[in-house]
């Protein structure tokens, strides 16, 4: 099962990278979201899958899933959400100011 998940994560990375290499701002934001999904899945997979119950102590259960990767992913989800929302508003503002969402046209001034 882990191999399938790794393949899925790899697909997410690949599509995310492809989106980032595009010109439109919206695609770039979509790419970052895909990459963070891929990373989260990656972390979870590396911590072994399907080894026991959810990590909430219940009497009688001895086998639990690894709680540490889950805590890490939780933190990461929140952070990537913050970054994504910031990026979206940035894209919105950039479009409003420059009247373009084409990255090739956003060059700044010549002598920066």
């Amino acid at each position: 099962m882990e191999i399938i998940m790794i393949v899925l994560a790899a697909i997410l990375f690949a599509t995310g990278v492809y989106n980032i290499l595009q010109k439109q701002l919206l695609r770039i934001v979509i790419g970052t979201v895909l990459i963070s999904h891929g990373a989260h899945l990656f972390i979870l997979t590396m911590g072994k899958l399907k080894r026991g119950a959810p990590p909430v102590e219940v009497y009688g259960v001895t086998e639990y899933a690894d709680p540490l990767p889950q805590a890490l992913i939780l933190t990461s989800i929140v952070i990537s959400f913050g970054v994504t929302s910031f990026l979206l508003v940035l894209a919105y503002r950039a479009y409003k100011l420059n009247q373009t969402d084409n990255m090739e046209k956003m060059r700044g001034s010549e002598h920066e």
């Binding site: 439109q24 979870l44 959810p54 639990y64 939780l74 989800i77 929140v78 929302s85 979206l88 919105y92």
Partner: peptide, 29 residues
């Protein structure tokens, strides 16, 4: 994969993200 807290957070965050995307897409070409 036995990660209830993650699933919960992911659902909420995904929903909010999609909403944000939809808010922005209105303004983007």
């Amino acid at each position: 994969y036995s990660a209830p807290d993650l699933a919960l957070t992911q659902l909420i965050v995904e929903t909010v993200t999609v909403v944000l995307f939809l808010l922005c897409f209105y303004h983007l070409p």
